[in-house]
């Protein structure tokens, strides 16, 4: 993907984010992650049924990278089982860390393939997935109860 296209996709997701804002929060699991700079502040809402993410939204203020990464992530994960979401997450982290990864699996998330060149932005790009992992964990605790 060339740099201009990457930028276009990111900006489009900042200006027209997917599933930003949630009206009815009932049955959604919520998690928030603060970046270490404590500026980015995203609430993620995930609805899980029969081990599957059936819906997800986000709210909050964050930088362009975090906002777009959240938007793109949500497009990808709705409809996935938890295992599938985690496997996507693993692939994504491998890309961020410049390890070998399967780019076909990542779709639009490939726009962050160069983020390692700006180490301070890695956190921004991984923040949504860290938050997703929190919601998945919460869902497991609740089931164990």
């Amino acid at each position: 993907m060339d740099a201009n296209l990457k930028r276009e996709i990111i900006v489009d997701n900042v200006e027209n984010p997917f599933h930003r804002g949630i009206k009815d929060k009932e049955n959604f699991i919520k998690a928030n992650t603060h970046n270490e700079s404590c500026i980015d502040n995203i609430d993620l809402y995930v609805k899980i049924q029969d081990n599957k993410i059936i819906d997800a939204y986000f709210e909050g203020e964050a930088c362009a990278i975090t906002t777009s990464a959240t938007s793109i992530m949500l497009k990808k994960i709705i409809g996935l089982t938890k295992e599938e979401a985690r496997s996507l997450m693993k692939e994504y982290y491998q890309m961020i860390e410049e390890e070998t990864y399967n780019s076909d699996k990542l779709g639009e998330l490939n726009v962050y393939s160069d983020i390692a060149k700006q180490p301070s932005r890695k956190k921004c790009a991984t923040l949504p997935f860290q938050t997703l992992e929190k919601t998945l964990k919460i869902s497991e605790i609740e089931i164990d109860d």
Partner: peptide, 23 residues
């Protein structure tokens, strides 16, 4: 307008202008 403060400070940083973003 419609730009997150940290993105603005990064933009200014590109021109070696230091401002504080955040709370």
């Amino acid at each position: 307008k419609n730009i997150f403060s940290e993105d603005t400070s990064r933009y200014l940083n590109h021109y070696h202008i230091c401002v504080r973003a955040g709370n």
